[in-house]
Design a protein around this nucleic acid. Structure first.
Lengths: 212, 212, 212, 212
DNA sequence: CATGAATGAGCCTTCATTCAT
DNA sequence: TATGAATGAAGGCTCATTCAT
């Protein structure tokens, strides 16, 4: 026997991540209050007591879940913000495609639903979500729009409002998928929605004499 | 001071409405699971036991809250559906104004947040909300858009998707107000958002050679 | 209008009796704790509040039920006690017939079950039941048996024990009917049981040379 | 004093039995509905929540109590059923002694009282009690009596009724002890009752020409 | 580190009792 | 008298959290 080289070692380093992943699933399904630590522990494959080796309380775990979900998206937002200049419509199409991709492959929709649902009970979670993600994304888009307006590419109008107009169908799509599709509503194709929206909005936003 | 003030009053007719109103407030703030019947009863000015004279269980009360919130909006949706024909852009401006008004003066936003947050735990609530309200509204708008397309007023494109594009900023505004404004985000003026959106979208939707 | 001669007057005098009858039924079915005043009131055809016009508390009502059930049987016991002298076996046959009749036509079995079940929670009810009914009956029988022994009709032996031996099948029959027959046990014919028991016991009790 | 006394101990194996024992005591005293889980937990030396680690509901615990009380008696009944043949009166004396012993040393009387009192609320408990215990015991005795009749040892008569006659004083004794002795009634000596009953009944049952 | 038995505060729900009508 | 809406004190049960192992 070689005690120094056990064949199967418990991957301690991966535990927190597994727990957060399990917690995300349960919180997204049930909401914070209705989520049971029993179920989270079971899905993570650990004992209930083990949760407390990594997280102080249920609320702490919830914050970790939201925080974890923010990090990987920060980069995306930053990339969007730093998008190379060029014709506004190219930028917009690129950003829209990127957003649609993120919504499609990550669980950001579930997390958004959690944040919306628990905002009153966890104001600081809503605040972090807003300050770290939403505000940055909005500022980046507003800035790009304002710049395009300065270049004469985009018609007059509140750039922040333009940004909201552009983002809103994405939110609706997420909520539709999470809320109504499970009870029988007809799903939407996210790409169709996004591309039709971008084209429509572009036609409405671009100043006369600027391309398509 | 009225020394003859009764310990309790008999108001069978008014009580259910008062309780539902109180419950709406608490459910909207806390979510279903975190809402305490103690608090609902206190806000309604009754004892906890009195709730059970009118509602069988907490779930029953929750369903009543959602159901109650649907009824008054059904009429609005129907009116929208029956909106007089005429140039599409007139119709759209009218509908948008009406929706903005409803969102502004009713608690429909709070209820929407509840429905979104509890959809997994109360599928039938989500189903009713969808079937009675959302689906009707969507069908009415899609129909109007398709008719306008048939008349050559609106460019080609999936009418249902157009309808979603039009509605989505309203949803975003509601969620913004309920979720982010309480934690310090800058509020939007709903009317500005709606009117800018309508004008932008109209320019993008209307076929060449049609007005504005 | 003749206010002094209403056509249908509420029979106030009969109310308490109706309530006690309803209460007996519910207490016998459910036991004291599981019995609901709502149900008693409903069966009595009165409002819940009306119960409190006649009985102070639920316990008070329970005591009334048991007390009420004792009274009519007191006379029977007394009659038994005063049974004309004569050959012991005639007396015994008469008493047994009488007891079987009482068990068959009254609800004394249900009340006995209540008293047995609630004796620990209502000691004074058990005490009254014992002192007013059981002890008297037992004393009467023991006395008759002792007298018969003095006359040489009955073999030696503890008269009180003889009395218990004689009564016990009646108790068993009552419990059998109330407890096991409702769940599918085969019922007994009370008269068969009693007459076979009396004959068997008589053969065993009577002194040689006295018998049938 | 042990300063290191643990706040609670882990005794998974022993706990269910301790809880059932405590529950038996409380159910027997108060009846099902009036029994408080608080009290059961306190008597078992555990917290109220711990009850739910072993039993799903209060009803489940009640069923466990009754079920637990049946098992050890099944063997006794079977032994009685298989009692060696031989003169009927020897068999009967043996069985009576055995039954008196069981009644004296176990809590079967308390359980019987519970079953009788809660039969309407828990029909399946009454059914199990009857099917597993009472029916078997009755069948065994009836069979033995019928066999003795076939051998000419016992007089004609319904064997099942004979069996009831024989058992009934035992039931009366149990109820007397549980119900009336606590409120001041004079207790019986179980052995005196049983032996006098057996001798009396035997004289009445045995065919002429069979001994004593 | 990890487990899971045990805790105990707190919630939903019931129901005997009260009281304005 | 009679009603029944309303009360409020528990009780059954849950579940986040702790701790002996």
């Amino acid at each position: 026997m070689d005690p120094g080289a056990p064949k199967f070692r418990r991957r301690k380093a991966e535990r927190p991540g597994e727990i957060v992943a399990a917690a995300l699933a349960v919180f997204a399904e049930k909401g914070f209050a209705a989520a049971r630590l029993d179920e989270i522990a079971a899905r993570a494959g650990v004992s209930k007591g083990a949760l407390y080796l990594y997280f102080e309380t249920k609320e702490d775990l919830f914050r970790a879940v939201v925080g974890q979900a923010i990090a990987p998206n920060i980069a995306a937002v930053r990339a969007m913000a730093e998008a190379h200049p060029g014709p506004f419509e190219d930028l917009l199409r690129g950003v829209a495609t990127q957003l649609a991709h993120i919504v499609g492959v990550t669980r950001i929709g579930s997390v958004a639903k959690m944040v919306i649902g628990e905002a009153r009970n966890f104001p600081e979670v809503a605040r972090v979500w807003h300050d770290e993600l939403v505000a940055h994304a909005l500022a980046a888009m507003s800035g790009a729009i304002a710049a395009a307006q300065a270049r004469g590419e985009v018609k007059p109008g509140d750039p922040r409002v333009y940004a909201l107009q552009l983002i809103s169908p994405m939110l609706l799509a997420v909520i539709w998928r999470e809320t109504f599709v499970p009870v029988g509503a007809e799903p939407f194709d996210l790409n169709t929605l996004v591309s039709q929206h971008v084209e429509t909005i572009l036609r409405g936003m671009l100043a006369e004499g600027a391309s398509t």
